[in-house]
C-alpha cells in the first residue's frame, strides 16, 4: 500500500506487524467502556434521585459533586485519583483506576441528564402512582425511573459514546488502550501520521457500533415505544 503526496511515502505495513497489539487495544478500550457504563448509570441515577428528593444535606453534596466534576477536565480527575492513590500506598492498577475515574466522571453527567428526565415526567403519572397506593420507592422504581430513562435515552447514548472516546487519554496513566497502543507502534515505526489515521478510523467505527448497539438495546427494552412507533 503506497501512495505519494508531498514527496512522502505512506507506509501502512505496521498493520500486519502489530495486528495483535491493535486488537488488544480495541478490547481494552471496549472493556473499559462497557465495565463503566452500568455503575456510572447507577451512580448518576442515585445522585439525580438524591438531588431531587433527598434531604438538604444530600442535595448539597450531590450538587457539589456534579458541578465539581462537570467543570474540571477528566484528565485532571484521573491524575488526581491515580497518583493520589499511589501516594496513599493503595496499589491500584491502571485499568481499575481508569474505570473508577470514568464511573465517577460519567456519573456526574448522567445525574444531570437523569434529573432532566425525572423533571420531565408529567405530574399525572406521579398522582396516578399515589392513587394506586404505591410507596415512594415503588413509584420511583416502577413508574419514574423507566419513564425518565425512556425520555432521556438518546442523551444517555451520546454521553456513553463520549465516554468511550474519552478513554483515549487513559494511556496517560499507562493503561494500554487503543491510543496507548498507537503511541507504542509509532515509537517503533516512526509512522505517526499513518498510525493515528488508522486509529481514528477504528474509533469512528467503534463509536458508530456502540451507538447502534445502545439504540438496539432501546428497541428491545422499550416495548411501549416500539408499539407506538415513536422514534428515539
Amino acid at each position: 500500500m503506497r501512495g505519494c503526496a508531498l514527496s512522502y511515502e505512506f507506509d501502512f505495513s505496521f498493520l500486519n506487524d502489530y495486528m495483535p497489539e491493535l486488537w488488544h487495544g480495541i478490547w481494552l478500550t471496549l472493556g473499559m467502556t462497557i465495565v463503566s457504563i452500568v455503575p456510572g448509570f447507577a451512580l448518576g441515577t442515585s445522585c439525580a434521585i438524591g438531588r431531587l428528593y433527598g434531604p438538604p444535606w444530600v442535595q448539597r453534596i450531590v450538587t457539589i459533586y456534579v458541578e465539581g466534576i462537570r467543570n474540571t477536565p477528566l484528565i485532571i480527575q484521573v491524575f488526581w485519583l491515580f497518583f493520589g492513590l499511589a501516594v496513599l500506598q493503595v496499589r491500584v492498577g491502571p485499568f481499575p483506576a481508569a474505570v473508577i475515574a470514568l464511573v465517577i466522571n460519567v456519573g456526574a453527567y448522567t445525574a444531570e441528564i437523569m434529573r432532566a428526565g425525572f423533571l420531565s415526567i408529567p405530574k399525572g403519572q406521579l398522582e396516578a402512582a399515589a392513587c394506586l397506593a404505591l410507596k415512594p420507592s415503588q413509584s420511583l422504581w416502577s413508574v419514574q425511573i423507566p419513564q425518565a430513562v425512556e425520555r432521556v435515552y438518546p442523551a444517555l447514548v451520546s454521553q456513553f459514546v463520549l465516554m468511550m472516546l474519552a478513554t483515549s487519554i487513559m494511556s496517560q496513566i499507562s493503561a494500554e488502550e487503543l491510543t496507548g497502543v498507537a503511541y507504542m507502534i509509532q515509537s517503533f515505526t516512526f509512522r505517526g501520521f499513518e498510525v493515528y489515521l488508522v486509529i481514528a478510523v477504528i474509533y469512528f467505527v467503534m463509536a458508530c457500533l456502540l451507538r447502534l448497539t445502545l439504540l438496539g438495546v432501546a428497541q428491545v427494552s422499550f416495548p411501549r415505544r416500539r408499539r407506538l412507533g415513536t422514534p428515539l
Binding site: L6, L165, T167, S168, T179, Y196, Y203, A207
Partner: peptide, 23 residues
C-alpha cells in the same frame, strides 16, 4: 459525524504528525 466520532487526543495526534510530514 467524523469529528464527533474520533477522540480529540487522536485528532491532535493526526494534526501534529500531519504537519510534520508536510515538512
Amino acid at each position: 459525524q467524523l469529528v464527533q466520532g474520533i477522540p480529540l487526543p487522536v485528532i491532535m495526534f493526526v494534526v501534529y504528525f500531519g504537519i510534520s510530514i508536510g515538512g
